[in-house]
């Protein structure tokens, strides 16, 4: 169950140990320049990889090294990052927009923009939140453009409340037969598996009734497992506002899902 724990990796490790302090050495060689040692790297990560063509395969390297290589123009490193994170970015966009073609456009725009801006990323270890920030902003921009077209209304901020959800609502009693029996794709029983799939479809549908701001925060926290601090950075809001939006989204979704309990 989620609390404000450090986020786990969407599809690869995001762990990063802090700097261990500077060391330096000036060595020999052809007019040796400076040598500076500034931090301690994360352990190697596991994700879909490609051979870098140099030394160990990319999937044996820490993510900061892969990001640094991509910043340096290494196409293989960039492709590795694309493989590792295109799925996560796509799922975020798909659930934000509810449209597969638009979600694919967001993935394409996000990674092309990310590649062009990569050299400006000061800290390679912040690559993943930075990538999701680019994607989230693009989703918000698309939703705002939809609002300007009446054919595609979409509640955006915290002010609107979806139909069927109101403050006076009282959560009903749970059916004890169904407590904790949601087992997703892991169920062996076809009936239970079918019910689990139906519940996931219901949740996906309900999400579209959640205003875009809380929807993004909830997805980033409960589906993509970013920390509250990371989400505050991604959506450019105070952490307290992020917590409020996530709580609001949970309330709407929990209420909407009660008929499945």
């Amino acid at each position: 169950m989620a609390s404000d724990r450090t986020a786990s990796q969407p599809e690869s490790s995001r762990g990063y140990a802090p700097a261990s302090g500077p060391e330096s050495e000036r060595g020999a060689g052809p007019r040796a320049g400076s040598v500076q040692c500034t931090s301690r790297a994360a352990p190697a990560i596991g994700a879909p990889g490609h051979q870098a063509g140099a030394g160990p395969a990319l999937h044996d390297l820490d993510q900061a090294t892969i990001v640094a290589r991509a910043q340096n123009g290494d196409v293989s490193a960039f492709e590795w990052l694309l493989s590792a994170h295109e799925g996560g970015v796509f799922r975020l966009a798909l659930r934000m927009l509810g449209d597969r073609a638009e979600a694919e456009d967001i993935v394409q725009e996000t990674f092309i923009a990310a590649r062009r801006s990569l050299p400006d990323l000061a800290a390679p270890q912040s690559f993943i939140p930075w990538l999701y920030r680019v994607a989230t902003n693009k989703c918000f921009n698309l939703l705002r453009s939809r609002r300007r077209h009446p054919a595609h209304p979409d509640a955006f901020d915290d002010g609107s409340v979806p139909a069927g959800s109101h403050d006076a609502f009282a959560w009903g009693e749970a059916d004890p037969r169904h407590q904790g029996d949601t087992c997703g794709g892991l169920c062996q029983d076809p009936a239970l598996r079918y019910e689990a799939e139906a519940q996931m479809r219901a949740l996906t549908g309900l999400l579209q009734a959640v205003p875009a701001g809380p929807r993004a925060c909830w997805l980033l926290r409960d589906v993509h497992e970013f920390s509250y601090t990371e989400i505050a950075t991604i959506v450019h809001l105070p952490e307290s506002t992020v917590r409020g939006r996530i709580a609001r989204a949970r309330r709407i979704l929990a209420e909407g899902m009660q008929s499945w309990r």
């Binding site: 169950m1 749970a174 407590q179 519940q199 996931m200 929990a254 899902m257 499945w260």
Partner: peptide, 24 residues
């Protein structure tokens, strides 16, 4: 209600990671 929501969300997370349809 929240426990149920978390269970469905967890199922969705786990399914997503191996589902080719959830990729571009």
């Amino acid at each position: 209600a929240l426990d149920h929501l978390e269970a469905v969300t967890r199922s969705m997370r786990e399914r997503d990671r191996g589902d080719a349809a959830q990729r571009p």
